[in-house]
Simulated assay, not measured.
Amino acid sequence: MSEETTRYDASHIQVLEGWEAVRKRPGMYIGSTGERGLQHMVFEVANRAVNEVLAGRASTVEVTLTPDGGVRVADDGPGVPFGEAGGTGGPGLEALLTSMQTGAGPGGRHDAELGFCGMGPFVVNALSRRMTAEVRREGIRWVQAYARGVAITPPSEAGMATGSGTVIAFWPDPDIFETVECPFGALAERFRELALLNRSLEISLTDRRRPDESRSVRFRFPGGARDFVTLLDARTTAPAPTETIAFEFEDPRMAGEVEVAFRWSDSREERVRSFANSRPTIGGSHEQGFRDGVAAAINTYARKQLLLTATDPDLGAERIGEGLTAVVSVKLDHPEFEGSTRGVLGNPSVRTCVGEAVQEHLGTWLEGHPEQASAVVGRIQGARQD
């Protein structure tokens, strides 16, 4: 082997930045180049619009799958300026669409997280053959066009505007993706989930790709997590021995708030869903705290009512979970996740705070509903003997 073949120095290092890096390794930014990646493209663009509603600056978000294969995301907020975004501390629209955004949004617990890595719509721009932006602000309509992450026209006035808002449309690049058709069902499921976790959010999804099969859904759930539990139990025919127990609680020790709703049915299946800042999780300190609190409240009540003797062991969490449907949602100023996929919440204080809140509220409910409480304990004891 020659010296030239084996030599390696700085001249061999290829440095890719901006849109080039995104297009070279799209999976690092959106997860895949299949349908899952397309979903995250939609979520990265919709994220800003959703947070406009949660901040009270807009009232609704509309997502449309267009006949020409594009995706259109519109909100009725104040409209993002093309310059610096005033007192919000955020970038103007052109910077938002052409520069990498990193780090959590400024809203902390008040921001929902939709995308894969939270890199912002620039990633979508880089992976789209075309993107357009329309802003209605202060009586003027502004438009600009982009291609593969680069602005191809300057911002230009396009006439007078009625109302205000921002519309971003993009067309996924077929040179990048295995398919450019976004899955309606998966998008609808995630948007429904977001509306269930955020009472103030109203969001619609419309599919106009096939004129003879146009469909549209609109989501808004004033009942929050309570409505979520009802939805999760909608397919079960087993009767519910308890009503839905729901509460919200803010605790400065974890710099955040928790919303919990749960109930038991005569089904043997456990359905526990957990979320952190509206992001689905597969476990973590919030879910552990919920289970701690439920077990503590049930066992304390059972011993107080002599449903368990001094020699009986505690009712285990695995038995307590049978037939339990629950939604545990925390919204934190500083969420800490374990691992790069951010599927497990790590904040240690959250376990303590959620556990104490659940134990207190469930304990109060058990004391106030003795017949249902006895039915729950009896069911759990029966499950233990199966």
Rank of each mutant, 00 (worst) to 15 (best):
L345C: 01
C117W: 02
P222A: 10
V45S: 03
M28E: 13
G87L: 02
W171I: 01
G105A: 07
L127V: 00
G90V: 07
L205K: 11
I380Y: 04
A246F: 11
V217Q: 11
V71K: 03
F170T: 02
A188N: 13
V80Y: 00
F82I: 09
T206E: 12
N347S: 12
R351M: 04
V358Y: 00
V15D: 06
D314E: 11
R271S: 02
A195D: 09
A302F: 09
T352N: 08
D75L: 12
P222D: 10
S340A: 13
D111S: 08
S278M: 12
E248C: 02
L54A: 04
G343D: 07
P211Y: 09
F177H: 00
L315H: 09
V61Y: 02
V42I: 15
E62R: 10
I320A: 08
G56I: 04
F275M: 12
G87N: 06
P26L: 06
E157L: 09
R291H: 10
L54E: 10
G378T: 08
E243I: 10
T102I: 10
I245H: 05
D266A: 13
S204L: 08
D312K: 02
A95C: 06
R192W: 00
T242Q: 15
V63Q: 02
P155V: 06
A302Y: 05
E287D: 10
L324A: 10
M100P: 10
L114M: 12
F337K: 12
E269F: 07
G34A: 15
T6F: 04
T64H: 06
I152M: 05
T88F: 06
S278N: 15
A126H: 03
R351F: 11
E52R: 13
N47Y: 07
A55Y: 02
E367H: 01
F82L: 13
D212P: 03
D111I: 14
E322W: 15
V143P: 12
L324I: 12
L345K: 04
G363P: 00
G108V: 12
V377H: 05
A276K: 00
A234I: 08
E287K: 11
G293D: 12
Q381K: 04
E259C: 08
R148A: 12
T98C: 13
E202T: 11
G363A: 07
T162A: 15
A158V: 13
P183C: 14
Y301T: 00
D76S: 14
G382Q: 06
A195S: 12
S285M: 13
L96R: 10
A225G: 01
D175V: 03
M119G: 11
V344S: 08
Q372V: 07
L231E: 13
G339K: 11
C117Q: 14
D207S: 13
S285Q: 15
V15T: 15
D312N: 14
E44A: 14
V272M: 09
A55H: 01
A186H: 01
R342K: 15
V327R: 00
F177Q: 00
F82W: 06
P78D: 05
A158Y: 11
K304C: 08
P348Y: 03
P155S: 04
M100I: 06
T33V: 07
P239L: 08
A276L: 05
L307V: 03
